[in-house]
């Protein structure tokens, strides 16, 4: 079976982003970009399924500008077999992304589409669910454990109430949470091999997709800062302060 894995180029999670003074967005010029950490986990999980003999092929897909090929190369270096780049300089919102992924899914017919549960830039947490809806497939979001068994899978999900296990028929969409696995370090020879692995490129128009109506971003602002607090010297002082505020 094939697994299709989504890979998004985002500002590296270590970067402290700055909101532009004119409210037009977040400064990304020259900022370190990486693969969305949840997607890295998705790639790792797909590779582990392949290594366990449960999948034959892992295909990485990204939607984004030319530079997103760097993240595809990372996925290929980790071990993905080939990659698909849907190239666009537009801001692609989740519903459009889901439509693109649906079109690729129709072409490739994977048994599992594995996506990160959210991208750490816009934190939407939507694309996997939307793709599952469009394909009328089962979805198992926020996965922390995946057992594939023939044509179905048991997926443990991290939800607010604890750990929920669902049994889903394949094909399905799975979104990954942080504790699913720890992604491997890329090996240098695999970076070289990745260069020779194929990347197929499409435009959104070539896929015959109509972009969805978009949410319009009117402005970007910095969050309200908390008032700086104080250091107290002792437990007694702390307790007195909390009592004064009526908190204990």
């Amino acid at each position: 079976m094939k697994i299709l894995v989504g890979v998004k180029r985002v500002v590296d999670f270590n970067v402290r982003i700055q909101v532009k003074a004119d409210g037009s967005g977040v400064a990304t010029e020259g900022v370190k970009m990486s693969m969305n950490p949840f997607d890295e986990i998705a790639v790792e999980e797909a590779l582990r399924l392949k290594e366990a003999g449960k999948a034959e092929e892992v295909i990485a897909i990204t939607i984004g500008p030319k530079a997103s090929q760097e993240q595809l190369r990372t996925a290929l270096a980790m071990g993905a077999d080939r990659a698909i780049h849907v190239e666009t300089d537009e801001d692609v919102q989740p519903l459009t992304a889901a439509r693109i992924l649906k079109a690729i899914t129709d072409k490739e017919e994977p048994k599992i589409v594995m996506l990160g549960k959210q991208a750490i830039d816009d934190d939407n947490n939507q694309t996997a669910q939307m793709l599952a809806a469009l394909a009328n497939w089962p979805q198992a979001t926020f996965a922390s454990k995946i057992d594939v068994d023939g044509d179905s899978a048991n997926v443990t999900r991290e939800i607010d109430a604890g750990l929920e296990t669902l049994s889903i028929d394949l094909p399905a969409v799975i979104s990954t949470d942080l504790r699913l696995n720890e992604p491997r370090y890329v090996k240098l020879p695999d970076i070289m091999k990745a260069k020779r692995k194929p990347i197929e490129t499409f435009t959104i128009a070539e896929l015959g997709i109509e972009p969805a109506a978009a949410v319009k971003v009117l402005k970007t602002s910095a969050p309200a800062a908390r008032q700086a607090g104080i250091k107290v010297a002792s437990v007694d002082e702390l307790v007195a302060a909390l009592k004064e505020k009526g908190l204990i």
Partner: peptide, 22 residues
């Protein structure tokens, strides 16, 4: 011939990762 910009970037990125983290 292999030392193209994408390889250079990939090598620096991945070496940075393993060195910083381990």
């Amino acid at each position: 011939e292999d030392a193209t910009p994408d390889i250079v970037q990939g090598v620096i990125d991945e070496a940075a990762k393993i060195i910083e983290n381990t």
